[in-house]
């Protein structure tokens, strides 16, 4: 792996929480290197710390120790506002429970990152059309999240994560709330778009069938990250 192709690098990342009087170590000296265009899956049992680690990598949370680099930029040292803009421009996030904003329609939800980062229309119009078509959302664009099914909501969440054409997409169990058929469909769509755009995808999942589609698999166990040899 050449240094200039590394898009994500985590060095000895530690994340601890205090719960009442006890300190819980959610992530313990986790290290990872992800190359541009790669699909990395992180698996592990519930509570193993995989979602926490993903949130740390996506700059959604701050580690207690260690550093995380995205495209060579140390996001752990970035001021909050700079990190926010950086995240909006270069990273995409897909949540397990969609986290769509209830008062906005599907289309408006998809466009939120573009307005957050003040993207001009022409920069994403074509991309938006392609995403909508690929994700099959044409006839659901003007519906509120509450009027969409779980699968449709997740497709909107994917479109939202990809609208700014981020270089790395973090997906936190994107199929966790979906049935098998919907989960397969969403994964296929995600991979299809990834193939079209060439983004890096870091996905947390407990579904081995999905993980097997990844280029590399990591296992999170009690906060520690181990590569899975296949």
């Amino acid at each position: 792996m050449e240094n200039n192709r590394i898009i994500l690098e985590a060095q000895s990342v530690i994340k601890q929480y205090t719960q009442y009087d006890a300190v819980v170590t959610a992530v313990n000296r986790a290290c990872i290197k992800v190359v541009e265009g790669e699909f990395v899956a992180i698996i592990g049992s519930s509570g193993s710390g995989k979602s926490t680690f993903l949130h740390l990598c996506a700059g959604m949370d701050r580690p207690n120790a260690g550093s995380i680099y995205i495209r060579g930029n140390n996001i752990t040292a970035m001021p909050a506002d700079v990190l926010s803009r950086f995240r909006g421009n270069y990273m995409g996030m897909i949540f397990q429970n969609h986290n769509l904003i209830p008062q906005f329609t599907a289309l408006e939800n998809i466009l939120i990152p573009t307005t957050m980062c003040n993207k001009p229309d022409f920069s994403y119009e074509e991309h938006l059309k392609r995403l909508i078509k690929t994700l099959g959302l044409e006839d659901r664009l003007h519906h509120l999240p509450s009027e969409l099914s779980g699968g449709q909501q997740q497709r909107v969440a994917i479109a939202r994560a990809l609208i700014n054409m981020p270089q790395v997409v973090f997906a936190d169990e994107p199929t966790g709330n979906l049935d098998r058929a919907n989960a397969d469909e969403v994964l296929e769509l995600l991979l299809e778009i990834k193939a079209q755009i060439g983004q890096t995808l870091v996905m947390v999942t407990h579904d081995m069938k999905i993980a097997e589609r990844a280029d590399r698999i990591y296992r999170m166990d009690n906060g520690e990250l181990f590569p899975v040899i296949r």
Partner: peptide
């Protein structure tokens, strides 16, 4: 979500 009035159409958020 229960407090949102149904929009029927999306707003123009482009740009």
């Amino acid at each position: 979500a229960n407090l949102v009035s149904s929009p029927r159409r999306s707003f123009d958020l482009f740009g």
